[in-house]
Amino acid sequence: MHPPLAVPPGLALPAPWGLFELFLLPTFAAHLLAVNVVLGGVLIALFTPGRDRGAAVSLGGKLPTAVAVGVNLAIPPLLFASVLYGRQLYTAAVLTATWWLSLFLVVMIAYALLYNAQPRLALSASKPALALAAGLLAAASLILVNVSSLAVRPAAWMGYFDNPGGTILNLGDATFLPRWLHFVAASLAVAGLFLAVLNRKAARRGDVAAGDRARLGLAWFTRATMAQFVLGPWYLFAQPRAVHWAFLGGDALATAVLAIGVCLAGAALIQGLKGSVGGAAVFAVATACAMVTVRELARLASLAPDYSPASLPVVPQYGPFFMFLAACAVVGAAVAWAVGSYRRQAGRP
């Protein structure tokens, strides 16, 4: 029998744990929406029929920017999660170090491929680059799912003694496949909706091609969202009994948040089927926020009763927190100014 894998006690928090959760959830939702646009957008651009390459051009021109935005938006939630779940996340990253460290190289290569493919997106000649980028981004998503699933399964850390080389794959976890497919379907839905949003104004002005692209985007969104109503229950029931039971009446908050998320997803689907791009977008963003909360509650339930961030001692240090808020305000103002300047130079309202 392997010796027990020692887990050091958590460090003291500089502020109540709920404050970090308050920042973790919206920042992670924003990051998730950006990476959904990237992976789903590449797949849609890749599988768009040759007769309608306009959709590939419409999406593909935004994908390098979406990659950069997604990478930058990953930093805040990673920092907040590291405060609350550092020992779980860093342990999982070390156990899978070979894959984890390759993540950054994989994403950079995918970014380069998408950037260089932009001039050729209207041609079928761009498909090899898109296919390779799609494969790399899919690999990146598998790496992230591998680390995330391993982080909430401390019992699987014992695999280190059989594989100390940093190449552990958590494929034996029952949640691995449904979790990844759930993410891929969400990416197709969000990217399809993004395509519809990009072409909505032109379609309203009577641009027939833009109208076709908007309808194509809504078709991707509605079909992928329908698939989520199958993948979601599969992912839920693949969780340990204590976790999925919490969402089926065992925990009032978890059950309520899941119910709200399902209702919001249903509302987004209805809006998409009605052809309302704006309504579908509003409900889709709300659904993402609800499902990120569901994910967080599932993580708490998975780690209980051995670990809870609420049990960590608090040694208040609010100076760095206020400096963080001030920095956010300055950066937000700078970004707003830069975007406004760009839009004015481009002649956009």
Rank of each mutant, 00 (worst) to 15 (best):
G332C: 13
V277A: 02
C263K: 00
L269A: 05
S311Y: 07
T287I: 03
V314Y: 08
C289D: 00
G278P: 06
G332R: 15
A284C: 07
G279A: 01
G279K: 01
G332T: 15
T293C: 10
L258R: 04
S311C: 02
T293F: 11
F283H: 05
P309H: 06
A333K: 11
V314E: 11
V282L: 11
A267T: 08
L303I: 06
T293M: 12
F322N: 11
G261W: 00
F283V: 01
D306R: 11
I260F: 09
G332I: 15
V335I: 15
S341K: 15
V282Q: 03
L325S: 12
A259W: 00
I260A: 11
G279M: 01
L297S: 06
V294F: 02
F324S: 13
A326M: 14
A267V: 10
G319N: 07
G319C: 08
A280P: 03
Y307N: 06
A326N: 12
V262K: 02
P305T: 08
W337K: 15
L312E: 02
P309E: 05
A286L: 14
L300R: 12
A334K: 13
R299Y: 01
V285P: 04
A327W: 13
M291R: 05
V339Q: 10
A338Q: 14
G279D: 00
I260H: 01
G340D: 11
S308E: 05
S311M: 10
A290G: 06
P320I: 09
R295L: 10
S302W: 07
A304V: 09
E296K: 10
I270T: 01
A284G: 00
V285I: 04
V314P: 09
S302C: 07
V335K: 15
C263I: 06
S308Q: 07
V330L: 15
G272A: 04
V262N: 01
R299H: 01
R299C: 00
G266F: 08
